[in-house]
Design a protein around this nucleic acid. Structure first.
Lengths: 205, 205
DNA sequence: TTTGGGACAGACCGGTCGGTCTGCTAAAAT
DNA sequence: ATTTTAGCAGACCGACCGGTCTGTCCCAAA
């Protein structure tokens, strides 16, 4: 095998990812990627048979990353505490911690970027994003149900809805943070979510 | 004055709005708008001097609508109750009511659609969106502070953060709802928000 | 009745973008 | 040493898209 092309492929994906978050995938021209990567069309079309193939690779890679982060966070939380409520709070806290520790924190969600252009791409791409979100929902909902058993909530708790609130807040926080130029919104809103969970499962005195 | 061109202008804006939510503004070609509107380029460029002017008009009109809805909801809530907490809950409830009553409920937020392409447009367009979001924040934060005075919260309440949660949840809910093909997410998450507010200001027994 | 301008129609142009194709180069396999 | 092939370069093409320009029609004011 000749020289290793995986570096080039990764660079293309990285650059395309950043540009997509900034200008959307449609406005992300292949030539723009080439310019930033310092390569030519030959290189690009050697790695991706079309621009849509690049889109697919982008969301697939992103989905894998998100799923990996989910399992890692849940795993760590389960080792740090036995109580499901604490595990929940830990998942959120560890997520906040991770974000604040990032050198260049995420500027947005790739799924969100594509979802506002959904008509341009095959349905299956939305399916990949949907699967990822459902995975988070299920993982968190399981913990929420377990927490509700050990800490009888003061009001009825819809586990799925409370779980979806996590994804919802993150997606929304990206939009609001970008619009207001206030990156702090993300951790702030996750703090509110933690607050909500604690109130939900707090013993009524 | 010859025949009235305001109808045409409105139709262009309506069609452009819908297409932008579905494919993003970049992929929304002028010719695509013309085809759906049954007009020609002459008509379009008579009403808008450029495609970017159309973008501006779109977000301006949208911002006006959002501000009007804010003042209308707050006004109605203030007439329906004297208690600031109830007013808050009413604003959310009335918003839910309005959405469920819509023949074709909103498919997304125009600000969000533009924010994921922010690099393509002048900064002032983001400013318009920001002003709108800040208006909601301030209106809600005022109510939240008033509610906190009359109903001493069980934990510290960051009025701005709790207010921003409304916008955040809506923006996020649009993304999640579109991705999961589950339009119900929006009212569901607003229900969680109401829940949170009630828990925040509930008397501890 | 004339005329001026707003409301369009539609041909046309220049640039950009996705995609193709041919060919070069270096390293691994034989 | 030769062959093979992944990795890449870059000229080229056709389609599309934003924008311009000229011309037409219609209504209102003079």
């Amino acid at each position: 095998m000749p020289r290793d092309g995986r570096n080039t492929r990764q660079r293309i994906l990285d650059i395309a990812h950043r540009q997509t978050l900034r200008q959307g995938f449609t406005a992300t021209s292949i030539e723009g990627i080439l310019a930033e990567a310092g390569i030519t069309k030959g290189a690009f079309f050697h790695h991706f048979k079309s621009k849509n193939a690049l889109a697919r690779a982008l969301v697939e890679r992103y989905a894998e990353g998100e799923l990996q982060m989910l399992s890692e966070l849940v795993g760590r939380a389960e080792k740090l505490s036995r109580d499901p409520l604490q595990q929940l709070l830990l998942v959120i806290g560890l997520f906040q911690e991770w974000m604040e520790g990032q050198a260049d924190p995420p500027e947005g969600c790739l799924f969100a970027s594509f979802c506002y252009q959904s008509e341009l791409f095959p349905e299956e791409m939305k399916g990949i994003a949907a699967e990822t979100m459902v995975a988070w929902r299920q993982a968190l909902a399981t913990k929420i149900r377990a927490a509700a058993e050990q800490h009888p909530p003061s009001v009825a708790v819809d586990a799925e809805a409370v779980a979806d609130m996590f994804t919802t807040l993150i997606e929304g926080a990206f939009v609001v943070a970008r619009t207001l130029d206030a990156p702090g919104i993300l951790t702030e809103q996750l703090g509110q979510y933690r607050n909500y969970l604690e109130l939900l499962f707090a013993p009524r005195r």
